[in-house]
Design a protein around this nucleic acid. Sequence first.
DNA 1: AAAGAAATCAACCGCATCTTC
DNA 2: CGAAGATGCGGTTGATTTCTT
Length: 488
Amino acid sequence: MSSMTSGGDTRKISKGRQSSSLVEEDGDGENVGEGPLKKGPWTSAEDAILIEYVKKHGQGNWNAVQKYSGLARCGKSCRLRWANHLRPDLKKGAFTAEEESRIIELHSKMGNKWARMAAELPGRTDNEIKNYWNTRIKRMQRAGLPIYPDEVYQRIHNANQESQNVGTLTNEASQHDDLSQTDNFDIQDGEFKNFKFCPGLSHGPSIFDMPQSSLFEQSSDTSHTYNILFPTMHPSKRRRESEILYNSFDSCTSNAVPVLDPYGNYNCERFSDHNSHAALNGNASSSGPIFGSMKLELPSLQYPETQHGSWGMYTPTSPLPSLESVDTLIQSPLVEPILSDPVSPQSCGLLEAIVYNSNTLKGSRNDSLLPETTDTPYQAINNSILNLPFKTEWDEQEEPNSSLGQSAASVLTDYTPVSISSVDGPQSVETTQDSSGKKENLNQIEFTRPDALLDLGWFGNNTEYGSDQSVLKDALSALLGEDFQGEQ
DNA sequence: AAAGAAATCAACCGCATCTTC
DNA sequence: CGAAGATGCGGTTGATTTCTT
């Protein structure tokens, strides 16, 4: 994959980040002894010192390296260097095809859990895997190819169906840790045997190769419905590939569907008001406005941390999120990660529904945007593919009370689809009332756990999907009051 | 051949968690 | 039990190489 080598004497000495605050030596880099810690690329001499230290003292206690060896490196740097380059059990060189397919498999199950993935790939480091993945998705994105092979989607779908068959959702199930959850979708190693990673070669037709009618037909096949496709980006303007990737997942697992613009860019036509719904439409169009950056972060079930501290305006002291904006509400912390409920189909698409309804109510007077009747999200997707307006099922539900008797807050926490991960900094969760603020806010929603989206029971037999849409309606009613009721 | 873009990779940073005292 | 230190993790950055025009 790369002609560059890592570690050892073949390493490019001049490479690496420079530090203005700490000592950066040149040449031999024999920076040993007391004093400021060195940063930047490691030299062979430093490597030798570190190796010698590990031979003597073993791994660990990295902060003692400087003390015992005189190496002017911080413990973290020593650990990283050892783990990523000096460990004797490291594999060098490019990933093999088997490793690549394994990474894809693991990522489909774990998301960006690089360290855990590295544990499954002997001799490989989390950094390697991370770099590989980032490179890969960028490449796939550019090629307009799906990030995962069909097999992955199929396995997840199958596993999901199996889990649904096993039994009903229990609270215990929802409290499983992430590993047990991901096990629900465990993809047998052997099932990947047919998958060959072919850089630059799609495993299937690109969305750009297919007419919309084909998409429609494909959508009728549950095994392909969620074949997430990357947008083809205009080469001159690209957002981070991960943003696009996960926005794509977002869109494709919601009622929104990727539709190409005349430039072959990827948009979600459900939200024809792109400016207001950019966050949800997987807006990777280079021809359209690119709103504030959307950071990639995994909103996985694995990440309870996404529930804390990053949700900005919503505070636990408030029984309900602010009524000022549904946008705020959308960013409220989840009571539990969505994938803690791996078989909960009713979770699907509610976020999009909320956002959609919110935006419809708050700003849009364009009736053409109102959806037509759709019996299932499945059909919604089909309709969207055909660029037809549709109406979500909950729009028709008239039940005054949630069947679960939940408050709006609980509804919106329990039913928010896919944990929406934290955003960067407090500014990211600011919610403004003007349209631009709303737009930016939406853009800050992050979806980085494709399997989470894939596992929401969106695979055809999602019969429960519409049954609890009244819950959403209740929640919106509670939050928006008459405005919402008036728009019914 | 030159320039710019893209790819690659090592390393840093901040934060979370674990461990020790 | 809390503080401090150690460790681990994931995201990001920036230098260099490679590719493309």
